[in-house]
């Protein structure tokens, strides 16, 4: 039961983008860290700015 609630909570966080930064760090650790030209990961603030701006590029809402 507790596990299900926690899974649900994870999904809600992911759905809203609440955990976007944590997932970015994870993705960074898995992918970018292996590359040569290492840039340090973005700060939470800087990442969030970029994430939000990129989200609103294309068609997002309809009738």
């Amino acid at each position: 039961m507790l596990k299900r609630v926690s899974v649900l909570w994870q999904n809600i966080r992911q759905l809203s983008g609440d955990d976007a930064y944590e997932r970015y760090l994870k993705h960074y650790a898995e992918h970018q860290a292996a590359q040569e030209n290492l840039e340090p990961p973005l700060s939470r603030e800087a990442y969030f700015k970029q994430w939000q701006d990129s989200k609103w590029r294309g068609m997002r809402r309809c009738c």
Binding site: N11, Q14, L15, R23, Y24, H27, Y28, H31, W51, S54, R60, R61, C62, C63
Partner: peptide, 27 residues
């Protein structure tokens, strides 16, 4: 094409939520 941003394997319920929120407007 996973880039951690717009291309990203995502939980199907989360995708469902995003997709439904996007298609269901006032129409």
């Amino acid at each position: 094409l996973d880039n951690g941003r717009d291309f990203m394997p995502t939980n199907k319920w989360v995708v469902f939520g995003h997709h439904f929120a996007a298609i269901a407007g006032p129409g």
